[in-house]
């Protein structure tokens, strides 16, 4: 895959990792301090930044990205591996689905090919901002309605 520049890293990769991290933690029902969230986001995005040029497939890229995310979050939390695993996979699904939906919508309404979205910086930024906004809305819904993944220890069901 194409190597990212440092500017692209700070505009796209780092905020992307940050929102994904926040969403994963919300799904897990975990609350950690902002410094740790930023650290996780930075480590994951920087690792992905370094590995990206050596991967030539979208699928492999997603697998590697998720694997890094699981390892880094687990190293910070030191517990709840299963919950972290499920949250990372689910968040990944949601994120790439939103991304796909977003790009398809832009392609349909603006009548531009997918390649232009990648190459044209302003369209790419526009697509990215809308995607981040959708993710923030989803995150707020998850937080507000407390949509954490299953708590296996809770037996106090009616």
């Amino acid at each position: 895959m194409q190597k990212l520049s440092l500017v692209e890293f700070f505009i796209f990769s780092f905020p992307e990792a940050l929102i994904i991290t926040i969403f994963i933690l919300a799904l897990c029902g975990l609350k950690i301090n902002y410094f740790k969230i930023v650290s996780i986001g930075f480590i994951v995005s920087f690792s992905a930044f370094l590995i990206r040029p050596y991967i030539n497939s979208f699928l492999l890229n997603v697998f590697v990205y998720d694997l890094i995310m699981i390892i880094v979050i687990y190293l910070f939390i030191k517990n709840y591996l299963f919950n972290i695993f499920c949250s990372v996979i689910l968040t990944s699904c949601i994120y790439i689905s939103v991304e796909n939906f977003n790009i398809q919508t832009i392609m349909y309404f603006l009548k531009i090919p997918a390649e232009s979205i990648i190459k044209n910086m302003s369209i790419r930024l526009f697509a990215f901002i809308t995607q981040i906004l959708i993710m923030i809305i989803l995150f707020l819904i998850v937080r507000k309605l407390n949509f954490t993944i299953i708590d296996f220890e809770d037996e106090n069901d009616i």
């Binding site: 895959m1 497939s57 499920c86 398809q104």
Partner: peptide, 25 residues
């Protein structure tokens, strides 16, 4: 979760294949 994840990837990858984006040879 893994099944859903793979299916999602599969569908999205097909879209990327049709546009020749981020694909191995």
């Amino acid at each position: 979760i893994i099944s859903v994840f793979l299916l999602t990837l599969f569908i999205i990858n097909n879209f990327l294949v049709s546009n020749q984006i981020f694909q191995p040879i």
